[in-house]
Design a protein around this nucleic acid. Structure first.
Lengths: 139, 139
DNA sequence: TTGCGTGCAAAGGTTTTGCATGGCA
DNA sequence: TGCCATGCAAAACCTTTGCACGCAA
């Protein structure tokens, strides 16, 4: 279930469970390792397992505006996150899941008119969320 | 012209010129340094100059799907790239500049309906370009 | 001449890799 | 038991920083 790899291990289950529990967030490898502190999961294992889960399509990797480190998110092929776009506030870091027919139309339009097949599983739209705008412009 | 910094230096001119010459591409710091090889431009200077140009609004920084390194692109505040979206093929790396009223509509829609202000200067739509699709699915 | 900008090298942070050991099947 | 997965530490990589020197104004 956790993937088609040969063995199921305690560590892989823990990592996958942690990702599922936090499926609405973008997590760094550091945060995952930190969240599993005390449960004997090495950081290399976190990276290796994430690579595995990405290859198997259970996890997506994003590169966030800050740049330093990659972010990961649980998003199985048949899950809800397959079908929608992600908006990321670069001020507060909040992540929004938007199911929007406009975006679907754009996807179709870009495909028909410009010959480009957008992959929404790899795309994040950056901007500023309502709360941050209300709180005053970020500097 | 190259920015409001105190001094204009040979290195800064070279870097800016290289960025302008390649304005349709996403360049890594490495590629910029490489492109100026033999012209006595240190890599630290590339990074420092890019930071400066970003702060001054002449250059944008992107974080690309491959992940390892950041990409930079010349895009002055009054330039053409201000007004449109970028499509990046994650198979061949090609970058497309798309001016599309659909995208503007989506931007407006997301803003009105979802309260989120998309910043197209930070957003890149990932997918597969026509040539790569025609050449057969990437693996 | 002044002091910012540069280059080199070292430091800092993230991710990958090598190798012996542990644990799943 | 066989062999994949793990953990540690070292390596690899990108980016930033410290410091003395060079160069623009």
């Amino acid at each position: 279930m956790a993937g088609s790899s040969r063995y199921n291990t305690r560590q892989r289950d823990l990592i996958l469970e942690f990702l599922q529990t936090n499926k609405s967030r973008h997590l760094t490898a550091e945060e995952i390792a930190e969240g599993l502190r005390g449960q004997r999961v090495g950081k290399s294992t976190v990276y290796r397992t994430l690579d595995l889960l990405i290859r198997e399509g259970f996890v997506r990797r994003f590169f966030i505006e800050d740049g330093a480190s990659a972010c990961f998110q649980y998003a199985p092929p048949d899950g809800a996150c397959k079908m929608h776009y992600h908006l990321k506030c670069y001020n507060c870091g909040a992540l929004f899941h938007v199911e929007c027919e406009f975006l679907d139309q754009v996807e179709a339009h870009i495909f028909e008119r410009h010959g480009f097949q957008i992959d929404n599983s790899k795309t994040v739209l950056y901007g500023v969320c309502q709360d941050c705008r209300n709180a005053g412009k970020p500097d």
